[in-house]
Amino acid sequence: MSDRVPTGEWLRGVLETCVLQTMTDRPTYGYAIITALAAAGLGEIKGGTLYPLLARLEKKGLVSVEWRAGDGGPGRKYFALTAAGREELKAAREQWGVFVTTVSTHLAVDVDREATQEVPR
């Protein structure tokens, strides 16, 4: 992918959905979410970005929280999807699918036009 591609800007629009996705199997905590997103190729999300977003999800009732004792650490705040969170994730997945199809179709049309205009003499 080109360096000029604004993946950060694209990600901003879907980061909430991507974060919700990391909680589908089990409750998880901040650092594990950052690791999961990085492993998925979405880059390294800073704590300063993630935790306010998690607080927003909590405020919306999409996740629930619980402090648990950590392994040798001070403790971890676990986030789990609520029923409303699962519904939100499902709806977001569908909307994202439609969006990707729309954008892909649009970009493909542009590529076809360029191909016809650049016919060699």
Binding site: Y29, G30, Y31, K46, G47, G48, Y51, A55, W67, G70, G73, P74, G75, R76, K77
Partner: peptide, 22 residues
Amino acid sequence: DRLAEVESHCVETGQFPEEAFG
């Protein structure tokens, strides 16, 4: 609670608060 998030995250990652949270 929010300060505990910072502490927990920094202890886990080994980062300073300035690095992780600006």
